[in-house]
Design a binder for these strands. Structure first.
Lengths: 349, 349
DNA sequence: CGCTCCTTTGGTACCGGTTACATAAACCGG
DNA sequence: CCGGTTTATGTAACCGGTACCAAAGGAGCG
């Protein structure tokens, strides 16, 4: 008895300094914490009159339940994470937005993590995994064994634009069919000698696009380049290879792994007096906003939808509605603009 | 004694089902939880030999400390939030990226919330505030009294591109000087009749730009329009007003509150056969990626830096390094491109 | 050899909620 | 008027860490 009383005193003393807790509310309303908790959660095992007293106390003390305490007791975070290499591209921003939108609707907060090629990325992702109920992981941000580790801890993972991993869901966009339609369109416009700009090792998407590109050329009986022109993902990377392309003798068209490469390349070529599509055609991938204004032929991907789909897949796994992995593939669409106009090198000179 | 033993048994039984906790590690290593906790936190009050045993146990049991338990005990989330209206624009994406980058460096996770003009935005923001140590709030996403409420709960807030609120830090970009330099440049190019596209009520930024615009015109003794052409923030909004502008008689130049409006307007005008800058000049604001490719004259804002600055301001408040509010203003820069070329309406016709 | 002082470690009360279980009050037909 | 439910509430043991305080063991010193 004596010790219990002392305990109560201690508690009151500390809580006067700190924020108001459920015990303060209970004392104020003259009920137990259990009753307050029930009232908070809308349980129907609370007498209306009692509920009113509790509500009044909550109001009066300006009580806000602690998410932390709640999460700890419920053993759930009510939050999802998403990991991507860099938000700087318009591409990732769109995906994140789609993800956030759906997650918010499902009552889950969203934690973002951009790895920026930091060497500590793996640890950061593991740390993030400890804060969420589910995790969406983009492309080549983190090693396979880290993903496996996260899965083993019981946190569902959905991979985006990445090769499948045992036990994880995945969402990606269709690449081979798209690459084929790009090539077919270029062929129809009279282009023959085609180069591919991008590094297949950097991403599954690029690898698939490169494979589709080669396949379509082979199918048409046209010269297939035996390797890509290596480049990263940014405008600078595209600009950097312009010189080498010119030196090697320009092809009819450069198919780029994404829009930023294509746009950067186009600008760098223009600086050398080479016109697109007059002297060389260029195509991109993603259909970012700038592609519209630059008149870039490209492949449109449903990025927002991809993010949203990822959030839905995760939700199903988290709530236990589904246990076997699912792998969704979203369709893409060729968008023809002036950057790949009919082959007209002769006419132009 | 008896009850204590029973308690221990119960605990073991439950934890066998659930994930491995610090108590499992303690038992396995033959030490107390306090020692494990010290070892985890790198305290130097642990004997090297003991630390080794603990590390071995952690390794063996594949123990990962629960972020929730830790946060609850430490009374901190180690996470920051950021609220913005919509990520769809390139503008917000950049700011969020800058914010995340700095926050991550400071060891804080980032929770994002896009309000999408949802009517439940206020509640969502309040909920978010309960999950973070500090919150960055963008423009017109949430009511002043909600911000006040959050501040009162002891969560520091930094406002971005928004009118100051008592007790909150803020970061914004310079608008009046920028508007003046835009107008001065246009005047130098021979433009006189200027319209302003954007809704000053929608955002503090727009209001300041509009004010700066009027001030500069008045200063130069040129006709000052008495109201703006109202529009939102998207390309569609810009396109929508094209017809009205034409019907009212085109001005020499349309100064737009952001790039998306300017770009949307330009495209819509082109569809009506009106050329930029030949028939009418157009300027934007933000310098998004598409603006470069569209040749749009605009005002560059350091968006990434704004996000980073917000994270830094928050960090200082959270760690208690600073208690008086700070209000930072970042400088902007006029970027002249061909969309505002010299006034040449006559020459053109 | 006894006595401080310091290093290491253990016990346990928190952090702020949820919820199983026990209990008490109210209601019901017989 | 009584035993059996049903309804409403209280008690306390969790969730998984942190850190204060006390205690044990060992070293240094007179």
């Amino acid at each position: 008895m004596d010790s219990a009383e002392q305990k109560g005193t201690q508690r009151r003393r500390t809580s006067s300094r700190a924020s108001v807790t459920i015990r303060d509310v209970a004392r104020h309303a003259g009920v137990s914490v259990a009753t307050v908790s029930r009232a908070l959660r809308g349980s129907d095992l609370v007498h209306p009159a009692t509920r009113e007293r509790v509500d009044a106390a909550i109001e009066e003390l300006r009580f806000t339940p602690s998410q932390l305490g709640r999460s700890l007791a419920e053993r759930r975070h009510a939050a999802n994470g998403i990991v991507f290499p860099d938000l700087s591209g318009p591409y990732y921003a769109e995906v994140v937005l789609g993800y956030e939108e759906v997650a918010a609707t499902l009552g889950r907060s969203v934690l973002i993590l951009s790895t920026h090629n930091r060497e500590s990325a793996d640890d950061m992702v593991l740390e993030l995994a400890g804060r969420v109920d589910g995790l969406a992981v983009f492309g080549r941000t983190v090693h396979d064994d880290v993903v496996a580790e996260i899965l083993q801890r019981g946190v569902p993972v959905v991979l985006m634009a990445r090769t499948e991993i045992e036990g994880a869901d995945s969402v990606r966009t269709e690449n081979v069919v798209a690459a084929t339609s790009v090539v077919d369109h270029l062929l129809a416009d009279g282009h023959r000698r085609m180069a591919f700009l991008g590094d297949p090792v950097e991403s599954t998407d690029v690898a698939e696009r490169w494979a589709g590109f080669r396949g379509a050329l082979a199918q048409a009986g046209v010269d297939v380049p035996d390797r890509t022109v290596l480049a990263g993902f940014k405008e600078d990377d595209g600009a950097r290879v312009a010189g080498a392309l010119i030196a090697d003798g320009l092809p009819d068209v450069v198919v780029c792994a994404n829009d930023e490469l294509a746009l950067g390349l186009t600008v760098a070529l223009a600086e050398e007096g080479i016109e697109v599509p007059g002297d060389v055609a260029v195509t991109g991938w993603d259909d970012v906003m700038a592609a519209r204004y630059a008149g870039l032929t490209t492949v449109r991907q449903p990025m927002r939808e991809m993010g949203g789909r990822a959030a839905q897949l995760l939700d199903a796994r988290i709530s236990g509605d589904r246990s076997e992995p699912r792998h969704d593939v979203l369709t893409t669409q060729l968008v023809v603009r002036r950057s790949c106009g009919p082959h007209s090198k002769e006419a132009h000179r």
